[in-house]
Amino acid sequence: MAKAPKLVSNPQIVTANDLASGDVVYLTKVNSWTRAIEQAAIAPSLEHSAALLAEAEAQARRNIVVAPYAVPVTLETGNPLPVQFRERIRAAGPTAGIGAGPGE
């Protein structure tokens, strides 16, 4: 999505795609990757997400994941919920049609 607001003060999680499968994945507290957004490691703000992002980028260089980046979230429901619409669709799957929902 074009130029989404940076949302620097929001908590952040880090996402990427698994290299071999292409699955949407999130970085966990123990530096592994999960498909479940609830298990994502949470940084309190963009500033604090640097360490997570550095770890993710290191793993991208080791060809585990592709194209990592930080995603601003809210924690109102307890679990991280992306602020941006695009990231919500990415987390939950397509919103319409045969493929709606998270699949498998």
């Binding site: 795609n17 290299l19 071999a20 499968s21 292409g22 699955d23 949407v24 991208a60 080791r62 060809n63 592709v66 194209a67 695009r86 669709i89 990415r90 799957g93 397509p94």
Partner: peptide
């Protein structure tokens, strides 16, 4: 060669695109 790491993503991307393989919102 991509999965083994011999090819970086930057080197591989045009190669996979020429074979119709994109990385989209959810998956390849």
């Amino acid at each position: 060669r991509r999965i083994s790491g011999e090819l970086s993503e930057d080197e591989f991307k045009p190669l996979r695109l020429q074979n119709g393989l994109y990385l989209q919102l959810h998956a390849y």
